[in-house]
């Protein structure tokens, strides 16, 4: 199915000017910070497997859901700090803030701590806002996930709860978990299932409304270890914590940053847990990116911070729009539009 999606957004000439100015300022900033631009394939043999992200198939491979795997292989092979503005695809994600195809700005800074990566997010948001003639966000706030859980639910979690305990605690707080995998034989799969479902229910019921009321720029960091995804786990205040953050502006999620996990064995174990959760809820089996794991083992990933930032959402916010198609330059799109 194809359809015109001009919607009720910016006039076409203004959209083209907006994208041109924003792409230019994004590239200028990242180059000035010492990163090289790369352009990696859109069709790939394997994607970064996630419990609830489905790739579009492009036989004999897939359309990339993120450029992460390929960019990390370049980092392993000595690229130095790099960035990319890439087209990425996620099946069946259609809504005001979702589109099956969108743009990610993805960058990796060698040897940088996460605070520097958060600073990049702030600078890129302001650069895009300036390109659209909007004033900068101003001051940003940073909160730990557990702190926000306590603040919004009235009583806290430790972050290391197992599946059964978390499901019980969550139900007591009015957030029953509805996810397959809570009874999986593997404790890693059960834990991943419970925490993934908990964070989804909590975000929808508490975090998102709180962020919308608060407005402005917020980084949410220090995730429970079960939600580490591809980030390193570190000790923070005596407890294990995933070194990652998510950035929001006016309640809209814009970016996801990691202190990148470098241990190949740990990486393979996390892929296995994700595959187990996917199996539990009947998602298609996806191949493990063996080339990526081989590069982690063979060359090693240099210490780095990496961030992915959704450019379409950023431009939507920059012009005060509320739906992605109001700023999109896609005159017609193949795929679902009926959200």
């Amino acid at each position: 199915m194809t359809s015109d999606r001009s919607g009720d957004g910016l006039p076409w000439g203004e959209r083209v000017a907006l994208w041109d100015a924003a792409l230019d300022s994004v590239r200028r900033y990242l180059r000035a910070e010492g990163m090289r631009e790369v352009s990696t394939p859109v069709r790939v043999a394997g994607v970064a497997v996630e419990p609830f992200i489905e790739p579009l198939t492009a036989p004999p491979g897939y359309l990339a859901t993120s450029p992460e795997m390929v960019m990390k292989r370049l980092l392993c092979r000595g690229s130095g700090s790099i960035f990319q503005v890439s087209h990425v695809f996620r099946a069946s994600e259609v809504g005001a803030h979702h589109s099956e195809e969108f743009h990610l700005i993805e960058w990796y800074r060698l040897g940088a701590p996460l605070a520097v990566a958060r600073g990049d997010v702030e600078s890129l948001v302001d650069a895009a806002f300036a390109a659209a003639g909007r004033a900068p966000v101003g001051s940003w706030s940073t909160f730990g996930v557990l702190e926000l859980i306590e603040r919004t639910l009235g009583c806290g979690l430790r972050g290391d709860e197992g599946a059964e305990e978390l499901a019980l605690e969550s139900a007591r707080r009015g957030l029953p978990l509805r996810v397959a995998g809570l009874d999986d034989p593997s404790p890693e799969v059960r834990r991943l299932a419970a925490w993934t479902a908990f964070i989804s229910e909590w975000s929808d019921a508490h975090l998102d409304p709180w962020l919308e009321r608060r407005g402005g720029g917020v980084h949410v960091c220090d995730f429970p270890p079960a939600l580490a995804a591809l980030s390193e786990i570190r000790e923070v205040d005596g407890r294990a914590s995933a070194a990652r953050f998510e950035s929001f502006v006016d309640g809209v999620e814009l970016a996801n940053g990691y202190q990148e996990l470098r241990d190949p064995a740990e990486q393979a174990a996390r892929f296995a847990a994700v595959a187990g959760l996917r199996r539990a809820h009947g998602a298609p089996v996806l191949p493990v990116d063996e080339g990526f794991l081989a590069d982690l083992r063979g060359f090693g990933l240099p210490a780095c911070a990496g961030v992915a930032l959704g450019l379409d959402r950023l431009l939507m916010l920059a012009v005060g729009a509320t739906r992605l198609e109001q700023v999109s330059t896609a005159l017609s799109v193949a795929g679902r539009l009926d959200a």
Binding site: P51, F52, G95, T196, A339
Partner: peptide, 12 residues
């Protein structure tokens, strides 16, 4: 019909 998806979580 409204699709929302927090972070890397479950779509609602």
């Amino acid at each position: 019909f409204q699709f929302v998806k927090p972070g890397k979580g479950q779509g609602l």
